[in-house]
Design a protein around this nucleic acid. Sequence first.
RNA 1: GGGCCGUUAGCUCAGCAUGGUAGAGCAUCUGCCUUUUAAGCAGAGGGUCGCAGGUUCGAGUCCUGCACGGCUCACCA
Length: 486
Amino acid sequence: MSEESSENERQRKLEKLQELGIEPYNGPYPVTHRAPLIQAGFSELEGQSVAVAGRLVAIRVHGKAAFAHLDDGEGRIQLYLRADTLAETYTTFTDLLDIGDIIGCHGTVFKTRTGEVTISVQKFKLLTKSLRELPEKWHGLKDVELRYRQRYLDFIANSKARQNIHLRIRMIALVRRFLEDRDFLEVETPILQPIYGGAMARPFVTHHHALNLPLYLRIAPELYLKRMTVGGFNRVYEIGRNFRNEGISSTHNPEFTALEVYQAYADYRDMMQLTEELIAFLAQQIFDSYRVSMAGTEINLEPPWERLSLQQVFRMHAGIEIESLQDLAFARNYLGQNSIRVEKKLSWGTAVDEILKKWIEPELKGPVFLYDYPTVLSPLAKNKPGDPDWVERFQPILAGIELGNAFSELADPREQRIRFQRQHQEKEKGDEEAHPMDEDFVTALEYGMPPTGGLGIGLDRLIMLFAQEESLREIITFPTLRPKAL
RNA sequence: GGGCCGUUAGCUCAGCAUGGUAGAGCAUCUGCCUUUUAAGCAGAGGGUCGCAGGUUCGAGUCCUGCACGGCUCACCA
């Protein structure tokens, strides 16, 4: 087989290297410079000696001289190797090293006649022998299954894949900086929870042996973060993984990274401001502009963002009064006319939700805050003053995508208990995503939670939009896949 | 979970409508080559065509099932 013969070829070279007394897995190596710095600082570095280390990604042998490209993780730099400088080690390089091998080398910086900044190698050291052939140099690794399964190959072969992860890391660091600057404390709350909550979703279930207890992987940290505001932590946030046992799609992964923020003595209007300022800050830091190209259109993220109540948006985009959907016969008729399929049991809440998600939101370029939601859809949000049917809740929409969810938190333990009981009834009726009763949380509210604004943002989706990708998997370091059957 | 599409050399892809001994480029190997950059020139090796059945004298190609993946619908952020 070809793979075998190629591996044997590399195996043969590895054995030959050992015969020559060259250790094929070596290290460390004292690196003095990184590729982008050598290129940027050429005028100062010309003629100077530098030491670099990285993976050989291209080799061009021209008889008694050779060129190679080294990828050091930050960039690529060309190497120039000559038989007269390197003596007998020159043939070691040309005969026994391969694309994919990791080496360290030092030499002087110069420019070739074509103007490329290059290191004229004085000495090199093999650090790691690669036993498998890398993906093709020109087309890279295209096969999406291989790209996600062997993500390390994707990162080696496709610079956009690497850039996406760098962007992700940078954005998350910037979110932390933004919140630290506003005196929010980053906290850690349980991922393993005896009662899951804070969202409507099916959980993953696991089991603790010593306690002989079923535990759920959190679907959201919400109820614990609110317990912290009860405990006197007035500005908290958490960035972490949530787990939802739902389908996988270009905008859903079973584990995803969410930001949740809680600010005591604030409400959802403050959270709107926090949201637009946060995302505008990210755009400024990353693109140096409020105008950002997302999903094929330019979006202006400069605050303040448009704010549309559900009443307004239903009038504008659906041409109906939202309350008219409380008449289920009308709702059924309307959904049918617009060929919106509803698999769940039709109710006032599901009708609103379906029209919003399938009909209205995809049309909204944004950025826009949709606000004031029906209470039935929001078991943890606070009612609008004097109006039990509506809650103070909003969702930020960007390029037709729901980026998150926020509300004035429900602090009244009596009302919270009733909402839980209603959810519990839905669960009894077979709604697997209904919120379970959490007595301990209600108890916490009975001790008193300050008025609080809460915000959740799906960071993966935000990163996806900033990365100009159309699938979450492109910005998730290791996307969830079914293991290959043997 | 449903529908549609895909799976051929290490990688990127042809070949399949009309069945007849498996192709190209890159990579690899051999030879030549001291400023190339998808280096070049000459030659060579490399395949249970995703897996299992079926139809057929004959299947990469047609049919069925399965696996994995992508898109999409459904659910959710």
